[in-house]
């Protein structure tokens, strides 16, 4: 691999390996080769031409589609704060389930709040004026993926609960008996828990908007 090829690979090392990025990489490499040839034809030695060619492009961050210059730590802090906010709501919503002996769900949400809280406080300590390129498309994709995962989880758990609670009527010929408010609540809580976890994809879904809010405009 020639030196300019290696340099091009290094420039794109932290970029997502999409076909568009690959096309851009090929284009940049072609441009670098042309520039080197041009410099050689102007009388530069090859090694000197390579150094000058490399100096002409120091980063590709600003030409990657979706990349934006962002106050990176402000953005991260805001993400953790949002997760803490929605996590706290989820914890509150989980507390009534303790009455129905669904203690693990409440414990998990409680420790999730602690984790989000610690991460938020740590993130606040970082230099909030630091800037870096962040790819907005990546966060949009992440948001879509989280929604898809949650939707699958919700459908699977709802179908499973329905099959176990009401299907036993078919399997064992013993109908489910909802004899009062407690019996109703013990059935409803099995649907309630997967439903309230919708707060997590909602929180993560707000990341792309927060990224846009934290763009360095100048």
């Amino acid at each position: 691999m020639d030196e300019l090829k290696k340099y091009t690979e290094a420039l794109f090392a932290h970029q997502p390996q999409t076909s568009k990025v690959q096309d851009l990489k090929d284009e940049i490499y072609g441009n670098l080769l042309a520039k080197k040839q041009d410099l050689i034809s102007q009388g530069y030695a090859e090694s000197e031409a390579i150094v000058k060619t490399k100096d002409s492009i120091l980063s590709v961050d600003n030409i990657i589609e979706g990349n934006q210059l962002t106050y990176i730590n402000r953005f991260k802090t805001e993400c953790w704060q949002t997760l803490l906010l929605y996590g706290s709501v989820l914890w509150i919503l989980s507390i009534p389930t303790i009455i129905m002996a669904r203690i693990p769900f409440s414990i998990i949400t409680f420790f999730t709040v602690i984790f989000f809280g610690i991460s938020y406080l740590n993130s606040k300590k970082n230099n909030q004026d630091e800037v870096a390129f962040v790819n907005g498309n990546r966060y949009k994709k992440m948001s879509r993926t989280v929604w898809i995962i949650w939707f699958i989880f919700f459908v699977v758990s709802t179908v499973t609960v329905t099959a176990v609670m009401f299907g036993s009527n078919i399997w064992f010929a013993r109908p489910i008996r909802i004899t009062g408010p407690y019996a109703f609540a013990s059935v409803a809580v099995r649907y309630y828990i997967p439903a309230v976890t919708v707060l997590l994809p909602i929180a993560i879904g707000s990341f792309p908007k927060m990224l846009a809010n934290n763009e360095r405009k100048d």
């Binding site: 704060q81 803490l84 906010l85 706290s88 709501v89 914890w91 509150i92 507390i95 709040v113």
Partner: peptide
């Protein structure tokens, strides 16, 4: 808001 939510929790 987070502090209020934590107190409610």
């Amino acid at each position: 808001l987070i502090i209020v939510l934590l107190i409610i929790g």
